[in-house]
Design a protein around this nucleic acid. Structure first.
Lengths: 136, 136
DNA sequence: TTACTAAATTGTAATCATTACAATTTAACA
DNA sequence: TGTTAAATTGTAATGATTACAATTTAGTAA
């Protein structure tokens, strides 16, 4: 059985080809794409795909914690498969987003505030390695 | 001399009444307001104020690191005086944003990636204490 | 104080990501 | 195979932010 079908089945989500290709795209592209990037790419092979469907699929996958949405770049949402705790770096120059393996052990201290924590996002912003080189 | 005038002077920013009232608002309101919230409030006492001016003032203050912009709520930017390192909690229910005093000592580890880090944002999301009480 | 100039403010229009919605299609199940 | 609730599709609406041109003003120097 296809691995993406299994993911949807395990989460009791109705299996549709549109959801499968969105999920597959996110699994195979670790670029933290926007909804529009996902749509534009998939549209080529699936001309009948609607952008609304991409948004709907992303919302459904997000709600089930299969993916997460990143608010790192401010003016658009980016999406990422939920593969273990990690943080993100955003380059203000080229706009790329890359994973950062950082374990923050401060979550425990949050309990004193009394809020119910459901998501933890660590966003670092600056100029990426590649852009730094080009500037010299 | 007015304390906000001093802040602008120290940063070589031209002093305008609009910038002063925006800065004062952020200094006296720790609610992490949106541009529109700032505008709507200030408009009452300053009817000639333009929303574009609020955006411009925020951009200028942000560029000089006097304030910071938060991308925590996804669909809008929020603003915060830059008073020392701290993180933020966002309530998915009521939309409030509150400060969280957390020291993350992992910044040093970031050096190995080779990126130039200019900003660090810690965003926690969930349900706030107040909303939790109301739900019972 | 006055005059000058670059920069700031203002208001309107444009942009662009996201959401709303109604009509059509389809996945899941009996 | 038929039924039905849910998903997809396309278009229109929304809303935050930005672009831009005309007007005003802060800062400086005579």
């Amino acid at each position: 059985m296809d691995k993406y079908v299994k993911v949807l089945k395990n989460n009791h989500i109705k299996i549709t080809p549109q959801r499968l290709i969105v999920l597959e795209y996110l699994d195979k592209n670790c670029t933290h794409p926007t909804a529009d990037e996902i749509y534009s790419y998939l549209k080529k092979k699936h001309p009948s795909l609607s952008k609304t469907t991409v948004y709907n699929a992303l919302e459904t996958l997000n709600k089930h914690r299969i993916i997460q949405s990143l608010t790192i770049s401010g003016n658009e949402l980016r999406y990422d498969l939920n593969h273990g705790m990690h943080h993100h770096f955003y380059c203000k120059n080229c706009g790329c987003v890359v994973d950062v393996e950082l374990k923050c052990s401060n979550i425990e201290k949050m309990k004193k505030y009394g809020h119910q924590i459901e998501e933890i996002h660590g966003y670092l912003k600056g100029i990426c390695k590649t852009c730094l080189k080009k500037r010299r």
